[in-house]
Write a protein that binds this DNA or RNA. Sequence first.
DNA 1: CATGAATGAGCTTTCATTCAT
DNA 2: CATGAATGAAAGCTCATTCAT
Lengths: 199, 199, 199, 199
Amino acid sequence: MRKVDPVKHEEKRREILAAAGRCFVRDGFRGASTSDICAEAKISPGHLYHYFPSKEAIIIGLAGAGLAQATEGIKRITDGPDVLAAFLSEFEHLQAERDYSLQGLLLDMLTEAGRSPEIGKILRKHSLAIRAMFADFLREGQHQGRIDPGLDPDAAANTLLSVIDGAKVLTVRDPNFDVKKTVDHLKLLITRFLLPPAP
Amino acid sequence: MRKVDPVKHEEKRREILAAAGRCFVRDGFRGASTSDICAEAKISPGHLYHYFPSKEAIIIGLAGAGLAQATEGIKRITDGPDVLAAFLSEFEHLQAERDYSLQGLLLDMLTEAGRSPEIGKILRKHSLAIRAMFADFLREGQHQGRIDPGLDPDAAANTLLSVIDGAKVLTVRDPNFDVKKTVDHLKLLITRFLLPPAP
Amino acid sequence: MRKVDPVKHEEKRREILAAAGRCFVRDGFRGASTSDICAEAKISPGHLYHYFPSKEAIIIGLAGAGLAQATEGIKRITDGPDVLAAFLSEFEHLQAERDYSLQGLLLDMLTEAGRSPEIGKILRKHSLAIRAMFADFLREGQHQGRIDPGLDPDAAANTLLSVIDGAKVLTVRDPNFDVKKTVDHLKLLITRFLLPPAP
Amino acid sequence: MRKVDPVKHEEKRREILAAAGRCFVRDGFRGASTSDICAEAKISPGHLYHYFPSKEAIIIGLAGAGLAQATEGIKRITDGPDVLAAFLSEFEHLQAERDYSLQGLLLDMLTEAGRSPEIGKILRKHSLAIRAMFADFLREGQHQGRIDPGLDPDAAANTLLSVIDGAKVLTVRDPNFDVKKTVDHLKLLITRFLLPPAP
DNA sequence: CATGAATGAGCTTTCATTCAT
DNA sequence: CATGAATGAAAGCTCATTCAT
C-alpha cells in the first residue's frame, strides 16, 4: 500500500515545466502546442494533465518560476555590500538574453500579462516586489549619503526598472548593437541619475 | 475586364489594416482571428485575401504602418527647435499606452519580432532609423554645447531608446504606478545623462 | 455582390439535422460524435460549425424539431372529429418506434433532459403544450357528455401522457411483445378511464 | 500466495457499485467517468479493474442490481394480501424519482438498453420477470372475481407496466406537476381498467 | 470585386484502460 | 491488494485558407 511519492511528482512537474520553457522560448506561449511540450518532455499527450490542469496553468507555473528566479537575482544584488556596483554589473549579461533561460520569456510574459488576468496578476505581484527591493536599496543609499536624497525612492525604483526592461528590449530591436559601449552608457545613465549632485 | 482602381484598393487596404489593428490591440496577434478582422472590417473572409495574401502579411503591414507612425513621431520631435524639451514631453503620454492606438501593439511586435524573421527585419529597420535620428540629434546638441560631448552618439541613442521602451513596459508591470512622479524622475534621468557635466 | 441565400442555408441546416438525427438514433446523443455527423452529412468537420455553434445546439435543434413534429401529430389528432378514436389509433404505430424517425430519440431526449437544462426546458415546454391540448380535448368531451365529467382535465391529461410514454417504453422493455393484444388492452384502458360511468 | 477472501471481495464490489450508482445518477452512464467513480469509491483507477473488467461491466452490474431491487419491490407487492391496494400505493413515491436511488437510473438504463445488447438482454430478462409476476397476480385476481376476467393476463400486465413507466417519465416531462391529483387519476385509471365491469 | 461555402489540419482536453512497483 | 504513472485514441472545436459563383 505505498502512497504517492510527492518528491517524484514534484520533480516530474519541474521537468515538464523545463520542457515547456524550452518550447515557449522557441515558439512563444501561443505558438507552442501542448503536443510540442509533451514531445519535448517525452510524455504522452494525456499524461500532461496528470501534472497540470491546463496549458494556462503551465504558463502560469512557468511565469511564477521565472519571475521568482528574477526576483531572487535582484535580491542577491541588493543584499550585497556595494549595491550600485552589483546593480551595474547586471547589464553585462545583456547579450545572452534570447537564450534558453526563463529570462527569454520576459517579453512573452509582458505581452500575455496585458491579456490574461491571471498572468497579469502574477507579473504585477513580482513587479511590485522588485520595486520594493529597489526602493529599499535606494533609501539605504540615501541614508549613507551615496544616493541623491532628492529622489523619491518609489519613483526612482520605477525608473530603474524601466531602464532594465528597456535594455533587455534592445536585444530584440537590434541584436547586433555594440554591447560594450551601450552597457557603459547605461551605467553612466544610472550613475548620474543616482549620485548626489555636486555641491 | 476592368482594372482595379489602385486608389480605392489602397484605401480599402488601409481600412482593413485599421480594423486589424483594433482586433490585435484587443486580442493580440495570435488571439485575433482572421474572421474577427473580417467582421471588424465588415468584409467577407474570402475578400480579405484580395488585399493580403496571409494573416502574417496583415501583421507585417500593420507593423510597418505602426513603426512608420512611431518614426514619424520621433522625426517631428528631433526636427523641432528645443529637442530636449520635446523629447521629455514624450513621456507625458505614458498613461494612455494600452489604448486603441497602434502603440499598444509595441509589445506584441517586439515579441513577434523575436520569432518571425519578416517582422524582425522590419522592426530592426525602423529601430535603426530611430536610433540614427537620435544620434543625429545628439551630435547636433553636442556641437551646440548643450549635450555632454563625452557621450558616444550611437550608444547614447541606444540608451535613450531603452529608456523609452522601458517606460512603456512600466504600464504593463504596474498599471497603477504614480505617473506624474515617475515621469518627473524619467525626465531627471535623461537630463542628468545628457547635460554636460558641471565644470 | 450576391448576398447569402437564406433558403439554401436553411436547407443545409435541415440536411445536417437529418444526418445528425440518423447518427443519434443509431448511437445516442453522447455516442455519436461530431465527426460521425459530418461524415453522415458529407461535410468536413470544420464546416459543421458554419451551421451550428456546438454539438449541443444540434441536439437542441433536433429536439425542438422532433418535439414540434410530435406536437403537430397530437394537434392533428385533437383537431379531428372523433378524438377518442383518433387518439386510440395512435397506438397502432407502436411497433415502428425504434426506427429512423425522430420519435426514436424520445428516450434519449428524456434522459438528456434530466441533465441538460437547455434540453430540459425545451422538453418541458412541449410537454406542457401537449398536455394543454389533451386537457382541451378532454374538456370538450366533457361538455359533449362523452367523457367522465368527474375527471380533472389537467390530471387526466397527465395520465394520458403517461400511458403514451409508457407504451413507447414497452418496445424497449420487450421488442417481441404481442402488439395487437397489448394495443387492444391499452385502448380498453383509455376507454374505461375516460367514458362516463354507467348511471 | 494467499487467496482472495471472497466475502471481502464481494463487499468491495458492492461498495464500488454503490459509488458508481451515485455518480451515474448524478451524471448519467456516459457523463460519469471511471475517475469519478474511483474518487467516489475512494479507490485508485488501477484498482477499479480488480473488481470490474470495464466500465460497461459496472453498468451491467448496476443494472442487474437495480432491476433485481425493482423486481424485489414488485414481488413484495404481489405477495401481499390486498394486491390492488398495494399496487396503487406504489404511485405515492412518484415525487422522489430523480433521487439518489437506483430507480433514478431507469431512464438511463432504458436508453442504454436500446444500444448495448448486454444491457438490453438484462433489461428484457427482468421486464419479462416483472410481467410474469403481474400476470400471475392478475390471474389470481380473476379467479377471485376481483379482476375483470375478460382481460388477457399478459397483455394487461404489459399495460400495467406501461402505466408505471409512463408515470415515472412524468417527473421528467414536468417536475412541477400536481402529484396528488395525478396520482389519484392514475389510481382511477388502473382501477377502472382492472375491475370487473358492472353487470 | 465580393460573397459565403467549404476545407482539413491542428488545437486543447478527456477518458477508459494498462503498467510498474 | 493497491497505488499512481502512463498511454493513446478520440472528442469537440477553431482557424487560416481556398473555392465556386
